[in-house]
Design a binder for these strands. Structure first.
Lengths: 409, 409
DNA sequence: ACAACTTTGTTTATATAGTGAACAAAGAGA
DNA sequence: TCTCTTTGTTCACTATATAAACAAAGTTGT
C-alpha cells in the first residue's frame, strides 16, 4: 500500500499538490486578467468582467493592481454603447523587454523582443560554437552590448533571458550540454558562464523545442495544441508542443528525430549509431549527395539557389532527401499524432520542392487517421525562429505566473 | 494581433482559463486531502495538517465534509506520541465500486474494483467482437450481471464505468470506433449501446492507453512520469502516459505503433499500408512465421509453451519477432524519451526470451542519452491489465475532481 | 503521585478575496 | 427634458483559511 504514495493521480501542475490559499486565488485571477488584456486589443473593465465571469468590483481591484505593476495602462475613454463611456485599458507591451539567445552549432544570434512579441533588434554571426565555447560566449556578450547600444534599451529593462542550445537539455539539470554532441562544452556551467544578474528570469532549452514554441505563439502553429517542429539546419532536431507546453521527455531528449535509425546498414553517425536520419538529412550529407550528382555547391544556400534556377539534379537531391525525411516523419505521425508538423531551418527555404515528395512519402507510411487531419507546413518565422522561441519561453512564464516574474526584483 | 486570442499560454487545465472563486479553492483543498487519505495508510487530522500545510482547523472542517460524503471513516484512536491520542481516519475504500470493461478484438472482460484498486471480481470470455457487435454487447451485459450476483454488489453501488476499446478514440467524439479497424461497429453509438444510467461516470478510451494507466497506478510503472505501454496481443497497440495523464494526440491516434512502417516492401496490412509492424508482430504473423519454421502451433499460448520446453526453433521465432519490435521501440525511444517501456499482452508471457534481443536491438538503434536511463520491463498485471486501467480512469477522475463525481447523483 | 510539558482537535476571532447591491457619473434616445 | 443604459466605485456581506485560545487527554520527570 505504501507504493501508492508515488501515484501521480494525473496531476499536471504543482499547484494541485499543495494547499490552495487565498493569495493563490488572487494570483490566478490576476494572471487570468493579465492574459486577457495581453491577448486582446484595447478593452474595458466591464468587458473583462463579462469575459472572465469575475464581478466588476473584482476586476476593478485586480486591474488597479496590474496598473500599479505598470503592466497595464489606461488609454483614455472609449465609445459609449448607450451609457457612460468606458475607460480603455491596454497592455503595456513596452514595460519590459526580453532577450533571446540562439546558440547554434556554428552560429550565434541575439534577439531583443518586447512583450508584444515585436522584434526590436536582431543580430547574428557565424561562429565555431561547438569547438570554441569561450569565443562563442564572448561574441554573445558583444552582440548583446551592440543591441543595447542600437536600441537604447539596457539590461535594467530586461524581464529575462531565454537561451536556445543545440543539444538536449535535461529538465533536472539544465546547466550542462550533452557531452555527446558538444564535447568542448562538457565542463561549462551554462548559467554561470552566461553571467546574467540573479534577478533576471533565465530559461534554457533545446533549440528545436524553442522553435516549436515560437511557431505556436507567432507562426504557423497558432491555435494548435499538438505540434511538432523540425529544424533542418547543420543537423536535424525536432521539438514538440503538447497542450501548449514544451514536451521534453524523461531525460530531456524527446524529439531526437535526427538520430532515428533509417537505414541499419547506413553510414556511421557522430552519435555512435549507424544510418541515423542525420546521416542523410543535414547540410553536409545533402551537399555530399549533391556532389555525387555532379553539383559542387559549397553550402546549402548555393544548392537551393541552383534548385530555384530549375536545375533537375538539384531537384533530385532534394526529392531524395525529402523521401528520407518522410520515413522519420511518418513514424512521428503514427506515434505522436500531432495536429501540425512545421519545417524550419535552412532547408525549409527549399519548401516548394521539398513538401510534395515529403507529404507523399508520409501519406504512404502513416495511418490515414493520423494523417488525414494533420498538415505539414513550413515555418513562417525565418532565421529568427529559435531566438524568438527562447524569448517567448520567458514571456510564457511571465504571463502564466506574473507574480513570480514581475515582483520582488 | 487578433490571432493572439488563440494563444494557449502553455496552460494545462481548464481551471486556469476561467475565474477562480472560493468554492473552487475549497474543492481543491478537499481533493488534496482526499488524495492524501486515499494514498496513505491510516492517518490523523494533525498529521494531514503537517503534510499539506493546511491549518488544523481547516483540515478538521474538510475531513468532516469527507466523512459526511462517507468517503472517509474514523477508525478509533491511535498511539500517543507524548500527548493526546489522535483520532485515526481512513479512506473508505468500499464506499463505491467501479466497473472496468475490456472490449478486445476477439474477447471481452469485465472487472469489478473497489476504490483501493482491489479486484473484487473478474470474468472474461472469447467473443468475435470485431464482427458481431450485438453479440459482444449482450455478452458484456451478461458478464456484468453475473458479477453482480457473485459479488452481492449491484449497480447502485457503482461510481462509474471505464470502457477499453480496441480502436483509437477521438477525444472530441468518443462515441464511435474507428471504421478502419472496427467496420462492423461503424454506426454504433457506444455510449447509447452500453446503456448505463446517466448518473454513472463513463470513460471510454483505447485499450493500450488504459493499460498504460493501469501500469502507472498499480504495476511496473509506479512513480513514473513518462511511460509507454505496448500491448502485444492479436494486434499491437501502445499507449503513453505523460505527466500521469493519458496522451492521445490530436485525433486520438497517438501510439499507433502497430502501423509504423518497418519494411516499405513488406506485406499489405489491414490498415491499407505496407510492411507495418503489425504484419510482423501480432498473433497471426507470429504463428505464420512459426509455421515457416516447421512449428504448427494453433495459438500463441501453444507456441509459448513450446518455447518454454526449450525448442530452439520457437526461440528463433521469438528472437526474430523481438528484433522487428525493437525497430519500432527504438524510434519510440528517440522520439518520446520515456522513462520506462512496459510490455503487456499475451506475448509478454515470453518475456524471458523476448527481452534480451529486444533490448539489444533498441540499444543499437537509439541514442545513448535516450536509452541509458530508461528501462524496458514486462507488465506485472496479467490479463486484467486493460480492464483494470479502464476502472482506474474513473478512479483517477474521482480523486482529482471528487465534487463532480461523488456529489449530485 | 503530581507537576510540567505535549499533542490533538475544536472553537473563536480575524484577515482576505470575491460578490452583489447601491450609487454616482456620464451618456444615449425619445 | 426625462428616462433608460452603461460604467466604475463603494460598501455590506459571505465564504474560506488562519492563528490563537482552549479543552481534553496523554507522556515525562522528579
Amino acid at each position: 500500500m505504501s507504493d501508492r504514495y508515488q501515484c501521480l493521480f494525473g496531476i499536471l501542475d504543482q499547484s494541485a499538490l499543495h494547499r490552495a490559499d487565498k493569495a493563490q486565488l488572487r494570483d490566478q485571477n490576476l494572471a487570468l486578467l493579465l492574459r486577457k488584456i495581453w491577448a486582446g486589443p484595447e478593452t474595458t473593465r466591464a468587458s473583462l468582467a463579462r469575459d472572465t465571469g469575475l464581478s466588476r468590483s473584482s476586476v476593478s481591484s485586480l486591474v488597479d493592481e496590474l496598473i500599479d505593476m505598470s503592466l497595464v495602462q489606461e488609454r483614455g475613454e472609449g465609445i459609449s454603447t448607450g451609457g457612460r463611456k468606458p475607460t480603455l485599458v491596454q497592455f503595456n507591451y513596452q514595460a519590459k523587454y526580453i532577450l533571446g539567445l540562439d546558440i547554434g552549432a556554428s552560429h550565434i544570434g541575439v534577439l531583443l523582443m518586447d512583450l508584444n512579441g515585436q522584434v526590436i533588434h536582431w543580430k547574428q554571426e557565424d561562429c565555431p560554437v561547438r569547438d570554441q565555447p569561450a569565443q562563442a560566449l564572448q561574441k554573445l556578450k558583444d552582440l548583446e552590448q551592440a543591441i543595447y547600444e542600437d536600441s537604447h534599451i539596457d539590461q535594467s529593462q530586461l524581464l529575462g533571458v531565454g537561451v536556445a542550445v543545440p543539444s538536449p537539455i535535461s529538465p533536472q539539470n539544465p546547466r550542462y550540454l550533452s557531452p555527446t554532441f558538444m564535447p568542448a562544452w562538457q565542463d561549462i556551467d551554462l548559467i554561470k558562464a552566461l553571467d546574467f544578474p540573479q534577478n533576471l528570469t533565465l530559461v534554457i532549452d533545446n533549440d528545436a523545442n524553442l522553435g516549436a514554441l515560437a511557431e505556436v505563439w507567432w507562426g504557423a502553429g497558432q491555435g494548435c495544441h499538438h505540434l511538432a517542429f523540425i529544424k533542418l539546419g547543420t543537423g536535424i532536431g525536432s521539438g514538440f508542443i503538447i497542450d501548449g507546453k514544451v514536451f521534453r521527455g524523461y531525460g530531456g531528449s524527446a524529439g531526437e528525430l535526427g538520430h532515428m535509425v533509417i537505414d541499419p546498414e547506413g553510414a556511421k553517425c557522430v552519435c555512435g549509431l549507424q544510418g541515423c536520419l542525420a546521416t542523410f538529412v543535414g547540410s553536409q550529407p545533402i551537399l555530399d549527395l549533391a556532389h555525387s550528382f555532379g553539383l559542387n555547391s559549397s553550402d546549402l544556400k548555393e544548392l537551393i539557389a541552383t534548385l530555384k534556377e530549375g536545375h533537375p539534379k538539384a531537384r533530385e537531391v532534394i526529392t531524395k532527401t525529402a523521401y528520407k525525411l518522410g520515413l522519420a516523419v511518418a513514424s512521428l505521425m503514427n506515434m505522436m499524432n500531432p495536429e501540425r508538423v512545421i519545417l524550419g531551418g535552412e532547408l525549409a527555404l527549399a519548401a516548394d520542392t521539398l513538401l510534395h515528395p515529403l507529404r507523399e512519402c508520409v501519406q504512404s507510411r502513416s495511418l490515414w487517421s493520423s494523417v488525414s487531419n494533420s498538415s505539414i507546413l513550413t515555418s513562417t518565422l525565418g532565421e529568427q525562429v529559435i531566438a524568438l522561441g527562447a524569448a517567448t519561453a520567458v514571456l510564457q512564464k511571465a504571463l502564466t505566473q506574473p507574480k513570480s516574474i514581475f515582483m520582488d526584483r
